[in-house]
C-alpha cells in the first residue's frame, strides 16, 4: 500500500503534464509557412550569413514573405535561385556570379614595412598598432582574418597577402565584412582583370609605400577602347559594366598591377 500512493500521485502528475502539453501543442500551434519550409530545404544549409540574415532558415522565411529576392543566396547559385523562384511563382532573375577579390598587390618584397609585427595573428589586432606593419594604410596585412572567416576554404595567404581562389569563392561576403582595411571587394566572376591597388594617396607618396602601387599615370585610361577604366582620386578603377576583357590596359600598365 505504501508504494501505491506515491505511484498514483506521480502517474497523475505525469498524466496531467502530458495532457497539458498535448492540449497546448494543439491550441498554440503556429501555422507553419509551407513555402518557407520548401525554400529552406533548397538552401545550402551552411548558415554562412552571407545574405545578411541570421541563417538559412531566416532567409527562407524572408523569401517566403517577399522581403528577400529568390536569388538572395549567393552560395546556392543559379539552379537554386530558379527552383526557389518557381516556388514563389515569380520569374527567376539570373544572378550575376561574383567572387571576392583582395584589391592589393603589395606582397612581401614589394610593399614597405614600418615595423615587424609579432602579435596575435589577427588583422584587427594588428590594426590597433598604428594601422598595422605595412607603410601603406590600405595594404593587406596578410594575417588571415579573412582566411579564418571563410567557410569555403577559398582564401589563403600567399607571400604575405590574402589571395582568393575564385573557383571556390561563393561570394558570401563574409571576408568583405571582416577585413579591417576594407580592401576585399566583390567583382563579377566573368571579368578577368582587376586593379591591385586601392590607395587614394598621391602617386609620389604611393611610390614610396610600395612597388606595386597605382601611381595614377592614366596609361590604362588612354589604352582602354571602351572607357571602362578611369583614374579617380589617383587610383585606376575598372567599371565592370563596360569592361570587355580585352586586356589592353594590362600591357600598358608600367607598375604591372592590373592583374588577372
Amino acid at each position: 500500500m505504501e508504494i501505491l500512493i506515491p505511484a498514483l500521485i506521480f502517474a497523475g502528475l505525469g498524466a496531467a503534464i502530458g495532457i497539458l502539453l498535448a492540449v497546448a501543442s494543439k491550441a498554440f500551434a503556429v501555422p507553419a509557412n509551407e513555402k518557407a519550409e520548401q525554400i529552406a530545404e533548397l538552401l545550402p544549409g551552411a548558415n554562412c550569413g552571407g545574405c545578411g540574415y541570421s541563417g538559412c532558415a531566416a532567409l527562407a522565411e524572408a523569401i517566403a514573405e517577399g522581403k528577400a529576392k529568390p536569388n538572395a543566396c549567393a552560395v546556392g547559385g543559379d539552379a537554386e535561385a530558379a527552383e526557389i523562384a518557381k516556388i514563389m511563382g515569380v520569374a527567376a532573375e539570373k544572378p550575376v556570379r561574383l567572387h571576392a577579390q583582395v584589391m592589393c598587390s603589395g606582397c612581401e618584397g614589394v610593399a614597405k614595412y614600418k615595423f615587424e609585427y609579432e602579435g596575435v595573428a589577427d588583422c584587427k589586432a594588428a590594426m590597433q598598432l598604428g594601422g598595422g606593419s605595412k607603410t601603406c594604410p590600405n595594404g593587406c596585412l596578410g594575417l588571415g582574418s579573412c582566411v579564418a572567416k571563410c567557410q569555403f576554404n577559398a582564401i589563403s595567404i600567399v607571400d604575405g597577402i590574402a589571395v582568393v581562389d575564385r573557383e571556390k569563392c561563393k561570394a558570401c561576403g563574409m571576408c568583405v565584412a571582416t577585413c579591417p582595411k576594407n580592401i576585399i571587394k566583390l567583382i563579377p566572376f566573368d571579368s578577368k582583370y582587376y586593379v591591385g591597388c586601392v590607395s587614394t594617396e598621391k602617386g609620389a607618396v604611393k611610390r614610396a609605400y610600395c612597388d606595386a602601387s597605382c601611381i595614377g599615370c592614366k596609361m590604362c585610361e588612354k589604352a582602354c577602347p571602351t572607357g571602362a577604366i578611369a583614374v579617380e582620386n589617383f587610383v585606376a578603377k575598372i567599371d565592370y559594366e563596360k569592361c570587355i576583357n580585352c586586356g589592353a590596359c594590362v600591357s600598358k600598365c608600367p607598375r604591372k598591377i592590373i592583374r588577372i
Binding site: 500512493i5 506515491p6 500521485i9 506521480f10 502528475l13 505525469g14 503534464i17 502530458g18 497539458l20 502539453l21 497546448a24 501543442s25 491550441a27 498554440f28 500551434a29 503556429v30
Partner: peptide, 26 residues
Amino acid sequence: LDYLKTIAFILVIAGLVQFIEMFLRR
C-alpha cells in the same frame, strides 16, 4: 513524499519549460 521531490521537480520543470516555449511561440 519529501524524498521524491527531486524527481517530481525535474518532471514539472521539464513540462513547464515546454509549455512556456509553446506559449511564447504563439
